[in-house]
Amino acid sequence: MAELVKEMKQSITPKRGAKPIVEYKDVYKSFGEVEVLKGLNLDIFPGEKVALIGPSGSGKTTIIRMLMTLEQPTSGEIIVDGTDLWHMKKNGKTIPANEKHLREVRGDIGMVFQHFNLFPHMTILENCMTAPIQVKKESKETARERSVEMLEKVGLGDKLDNYPSQLSGGQKQRVAMARALVMRPKIMLFDEVTSALDPELVGEVLEVIRDIAEEGEMAMVLVTHEMDFALEIADRVIFLDDGVIAEQGSASEVLEESDNERLQQFLYRFRS
């Protein structure tokens, strides 16, 4: 069975020849004195599903937060679809990106957060509709139609007019995913989306992620502690340790065959 899964995985591993949709080039990031990332080089390909694993403080969340422009790299470049995210050209000179540039480049990126971050003063339908109307200038009707469709897809079609405070953690996280999906991102970032959930609610959220992954068009980067889930859906698993990529490869390569000692320790803690 494991062999079969492995074979299947390899067959859908992305074409390394294709042009990457995201490139990290020698990225460093410090918070004050603490250096979290020490020269990260990473390419992500269109449609690829990448799982980032590693001990806390290894910088995995920082990686996706920099891509979402929530955190600025100390040095290095992040290229999104051929454009430098954090720098722009002006009069032939390269200068730090302004808000306008950031907005242009991050338009294809969506994110789901550990603590949901739903807007508590809006119904869940409004949570989903706001951005398409405001950012994509869609008509109210279109936005509504697509939001309803997306909420139905995550199984919350009957809760449209509820407020986030009336939902369970798992339901909130499904709304958060629908909210990100209506923006039709090409890259979707998941920041420990099941960590804040009660154990019995994790399954329903993973179910939705699995559905999204199976559709296949979107690149997905998951920061996760769900090892078995990573094994199941990720094309590539990346183990981060001490600010660098310590090990990467297909899920089975990394999770089962690697002899990296730190990785073994890390996995041991999770499997016990």
Binding site: M68, L70, R103
Partner: peptide
Amino acid sequence: EASIALNL
């Protein structure tokens, strides 16, 4: 952060 992620 969520509203940045939605590109507002």
